[in-house]
Amino acid sequence: MAVGRTLVFAQGKGGVGKTTLTSNTAALAASAGHRVLVIDLDQQGNVARDLGFPPNSGDDLMSSLLTAAPLPISKDVRPNLDVVAGGPAIGDAASVFASRSARGSSDLADVLEAKLRPIEADYDLILIDTPPGDRILVEAALSVALAVAIPTRMDEASIDGVTRIAERFLAVTPRNPQLRLAGVVLFAISSRTTRLERDVRNALAETLGDAAPVFTTRIRHLESAAADARRRGLLIHELEQAAVADRTARINALRNKTSLTDGLYARDASGLAEDYQELTRELLTRLIEIENEAVVTT
């Protein structure tokens, strides 16, 4: 059963933007005054990198899942934004919980629900980042979610990944009938592929039928900003401001006939920041629509 207002980013393929979308939409929602919790269930633990704190081993989260300890929540990583950091230790969860489940003990979904239920009222929004290929972790996340958003790039392999999440979705539905597909997010889209984007949108709309929309906002491809963001631990809207400061520093360096040693690669991240702002608006609006539908049907 869904816990609070939980949204999961899931995709059967890696490198399609799950973590980046999780971090950026969470931070934007938090900056607007909503109380947000991010849970990183990915052993890569890149939410930490996106938010600019040191990589985590994931031991504390794993320990919490195996014992009666509460989730290891790092408070106020940004104003209104709390984080449960993931890391390599979470990679063990699948095998540990598979054997526990085989013995008839609580499975990971039960444990996650039990951990989240006491704190659901503390947050307006809970976002979960998932690994691409781990069935047990993904299904546990979907078991507690109100909705799942599927990011995809435009290549065939990424679009195939949407199908794999559909399988996970079906597996979880008997356990969590509230779960809905929020929609598909096109990620890292080049501005020069308008015709391809249109065809991919149509193909996805055909695949999804009436289940969910392909979000109007797509996240543009800006390699330099992606590199800067992770290198500096900045979110894209923060990078937008940093790029302005960087430009000033560059000009001052020119004036002083010195060189800027650690400048940004991105000169202007405002377009990308705007994409995230618009997508966050679409996602939150869609979540409320799903929530209202759930109330009507119950």
Binding site: A29, T280, R281
Partner: peptide, 9 residues
């Protein structure tokens, strides 16, 4: 960038 996001939830 938080403009328009407040109060949505």
């Amino acid at each position: 960038r938080s403009a328009g996001l407040a109060g949505l939830l």
